[in-house]
Amino acid sequence: MKFNTFGRTAAVTALAALALSGCAANEGGTAGGDSSESASELTGTLVGAGASSQQSAQEAWTTAFQTANPDVTVEYDPAGSGAGRDTFIAGGSAFAGSDRAFNDEEVAAGEFGSCATENIIEIPAYISPIAVVFNLEGIDSLNLDAATIASIFRGDITMWNDEAIASQNPDVELPDTTITAVHRQDDSGTTENFTEYLNAAAPDVWTDEADGVWPLEGGEAASQTSGMIDALTGGTGTIGYADASRAGDLGTVAVMVGDEYVPYSAEAAAAIVDASPLVEGRGEGDLALELDRTSEEAGVYPVVLVSYLIACEEYTDPASAELVKAYFTYIVSEEGQQEAADAAGSAPISSDLFDKASAAIEMIK
């Protein structure tokens, strides 16, 4: 698997293509830089909302972008993917962050409040594994296959020393403790990605289709990623799912892929993205992906979250278009992707995806 190293020249070219004479560019064409070399003339407030999985990355991105552009304020509300999409549709934000792309029905409806046309830009700019995380004293990791994970979250497996878990972890002393499965209460792209994996990899157990709203009764509900982590760390015998950047000191699950158990990593998550095709029938700037959750390739981690940046292809407000274009260009740049990797443990996008993303961003006007 090769990760993007872009190169200084490519980044400079991408920023030059913006035709924003005031947009700050340092050596390498990224958001940071010496103001004595290039002073930004960008001004205004850029409002975004959406995926809480992007929160750590967005904080790093906004800090660097605002440092390079001191007269710009970027406000990102990590209210959840569903809330972010709703806000974007209503015209309450210039861009959205979402752990899933808009589906075909939503795209066909074409009702996006800040857009002058029905066409939107969707860029998979944040790639991260979803960690299956648990809280069991003295246990840092477990091996589980998809059917066992699905049975736990369905409530069919209720004890940590159940034979289905014990047989996959013969060297672990499992406690006689009740399992408390925690799920997201809000409409969550993380939930949609997680349930899509369960339905694809364990269809005989998880018969519900992928959905951002948790489809089952029972278990414990928590709002947003921070609420999920609080519920897990505050309980005993808990298990849940969250963007891997938030796993912290919780125990994590290595997921069976083919004949081996694969722990989460940025590299393993990115591997599945490059192997996945784009959704058919979308606009030129819509880079929504069809992820292959059932891959058995060595080293692939299928419980992956691909979080999108969503914008209008054409804005009713030219000032919004200018800010979104500059901000998105920074995010997909080498520096922007490295900022996210350092802050959130995400996987930098590949050079091929960078080229596609840059072409899509260039369409914004």
Rank of each mutant, 00 (worst) to 15 (best):
S53A: 15
F88A: 04
D86Q: 13
D71I: 00
V72L: 01
S56I: 11
N69Q: 10
P78G: 05
T73F: 00
V72F: 01
P70G: 08
A68S: 13
W61P: 01
Q66M: 15
W61A: 02
V72S: 04
S81G: 07
V74G: 03
F88K: 05
P70T: 11
T73A: 08
A64Y: 06
G84D: 06
T62D: 14
D77T: 15
A79L: 12
A79P: 06
V72T: 03
E59Y: 02
I89D: 07
Q54I: 05
A79W: 10
P78R: 07
S56H: 06
A68D: 05
D71E: 13
D77C: 03
P78H: 06
I89H: 04
G82Y: 07
T73S: 10
G84E: 06
T87V: 06
G82E: 10
D86W: 00
Y76E: 00
D86Y: 00
E59D: 14
N69T: 01
T67P: 06
F65A: 02
V74A: 01
G84I: 10
T67Y: 09
T63G: 08
T67E: 15
E59K: 10
D86K: 12
F65L: 03
T62M: 11
T67W: 07
D86T: 13
Q54H: 10
T73I: 06
A64P: 03
A60V: 04
T63E: 15
Q55V: 04
V74C: 02
V74H: 01
T63F: 11
A60G: 09
D77F: 12
P78T: 02
G84Y: 08
F88P: 02
E59F: 02
